[in-house]
Amino acid sequence: MLFLTIGTQLPFDRLVGMVDKVNSELQLEIEAQVGNSKISANNLKTVSLLPPDEMDNKLDSCEVIISHAGMGTIITAIKRSKPIIIVPRVAALGEHRNDHQKDTVDSFRGVSGVYVAESYEELKELIIKRRTLEKPKGLNSPSIQRLVDFIAI
């Protein structure tokens, strides 16, 4: 199962629509928390808002998370070692007040397990390649401990 979340605060019709369109072809099992997005998605199992416990279950049981570039979800994915595909909201399309999600995706480009899609084609390709996506290395890597040790000198 793939799990799509667009956060809880703002709709993100473009992302829901893109994933729905990809799935009209691929016909995968995709569940989605779509908040107050207006678009109807015929190829996704949608729910408006999941209670926190159920949300946790979905995040645990899915293969890959697809998400808006919200920090909370990205951190959750890294902590759970789930590959995540992030799509930034664009202010010019009315998807957010500003383009900070663009900065967020730029920060995570090249980070293991975090994949950026900025177009329909990129998103589709990543969903097709879902089984080969790397897992985030998590937060217990020796490299972070090394940094903590340096700070603690």
């Binding site: 900070h100 999600q101 920060s107 940094l147």
Partner: peptide
């Protein structure tokens, strides 16, 4: 954004 997220990992 990303700056703050990275800091939260630390």
């Amino acid at each position: 954004g990303g700056h703050f997220v990275q800091l939260s990992l630390l």
